[in-house]
Computed example of a mutant assay.
Amino acid sequence: MTFWMRRVRAALPWVLVGVLSSGATLIALLPAAWIAPMFAKATNGHINLADPSGSLWRGSATLMLAAGTDASGATVLPGRIEWQTAFWPLFTGRVRMQMRQTDAMPDAVRVDAQLRGATLSAGGIGVPAALLAGLGAPFNTLDLQGDVRLSWTDWRSFGSEAFGQLVITLNEMSSRVSRVKPLGSYRVVFQAEGAGATLDLSTTKGPLMLSGHGTLREGAVSFQGSASSAAEARENLAGLLNLLGRPNGPDSVALVFAR
């Protein structure tokens, strides 16, 4: 072995340490802004992380809802989403992250992801109904007011399959297109069952009564339900009912959606 080969062999471990250290440092310093475009792309521009700060490993951003790439009518949830990502599990092919929303989510949730699947721990978040207007039609037309609470069980995904339950509770809802205030309180249950899912809508109280059942199978979405009014609110709710669906009775309309 020549003198120079011995020198290269002796220096090689230190070169590798230097390369790995530099790479680890660069990864650790990745800015939070790096994840924002990826998040927007994954949700088709509907859910966005705006004004990101910090790093990919410890940072924060505001939650913004938009109709798509056009953010002119977007709405922003007060407070910030904060996250912390564990660094060393990345070397075993896992992503472990804790997330919380400062104003709307008192308890942090955990994300544990690897190549074969991901798990989101059970949690909940409360938001004002006005936030939904950022998603565009029909929410911006209805201009809903009230409180919306989302709660979910442990959510597990394996490739294109998902398992878990999401419950959306809408309390004391009202709309600018109706003089009846409040319209009522409602409950939506979304149940993910592997390759498909079901959605059930029910009314807990109120003069505007909504109900229905929907399914999601192989990318196809269908929903059938009805909206009706209590007798004492029939006249004042007639315009809203006509806006919601096709009449199928004296005081009710059909809620039908398929894609």
Rank of each mutant, 00 (worst) to 15 (best):
V95A: 06
P138F: 12
D103M: 11
G126K: 06
L166Q: 02
L120F: 05
P138S: 07
A130H: 01
I125M: 15
L142Q: 10
I125C: 12
G123L: 04
D147N: 11
T141G: 13
D154T: 11
R110L: 13
T153V: 06
F163T: 01
M105P: 04
R149A: 15
L90W: 07
R100V: 08
L132Q: 05
G117Q: 06
D143P: 09
D147W: 01
T141L: 13
R100K: 14
A118Y: 01
D154L: 03
D147L: 07
I168H: 05
M97R: 06
D107P: 03
V167E: 03
D147M: 10
Q145Y: 08
Q165D: 09
G123T: 06
S160F: 10
S151I: 04
G126H: 00
G136R: 00
R176M: 05
A122S: 11
A118D: 03
A137E: 14
G146I: 09
V109Q: 00
L115F: 12
V167N: 04
N171P: 08
Q165E: 12
A130K: 07
L120Q: 00
A113P: 04
A104N: 11
G159W: 14
G146W: 08
E172K: 10
G124N: 14
A129H: 01
V95E: 00
Q145M: 10
G146P: 12
L166A: 10
G146L: 10
R149T: 13
T153P: 05
N171S: 14
A133P: 06
Q98C: 06
R116T: 15
E161Y: 04
M97I: 12
T153Y: 01
L166K: 04
R116M: 04
N140H: 10
S178E: 05
R100G: 07
S174A: 15
S121W: 02
G134L: 05
A133Y: 06
S178A: 15
G136C: 11
R149I: 08
A130Q: 05
T141K: 11
L144M: 15
G123K: 02
Q98I: 09
D107N: 14
A129G: 08
S151K: 04
M97G: 01
A129K: 00
R116E: 10
D103K: 07
L131N: 04
N140S: 13
R149E: 12
D143M: 15
R94F: 07
D147Y: 03
D154Y: 03
I168L: 13
L131P: 03
A108K: 08
V167P: 01
G164C: 06
T169P: 00
L150I: 09
P182C: 12
T102H: 00
L170Q: 01
L150Y: 12
T169I: 09
I168V: 15
A129F: 04
Q98N: 05
F139M: 14
Q101C: 10
P182H: 12
A104K: 01
D147E: 08
L90F: 09
P182V: 09
T153L: 03
E172V: 14
L135R: 08
W88N: 03
G136I: 11
A122Y: 01
N140V: 10
R149L: 14
G164Q: 02
W88A: 13
S175P: 09
R110A: 14
S174K: 07
T153I: 00
S175E: 02
G124R: 04
L166P: 03
R116P: 09
R156T: 15
R100L: 13
R176K: 14
G146A: 05
S175G: 10
T169V: 13
W155G: 02
M105T: 05
V148W: 02
D154R: 12
M99H: 01
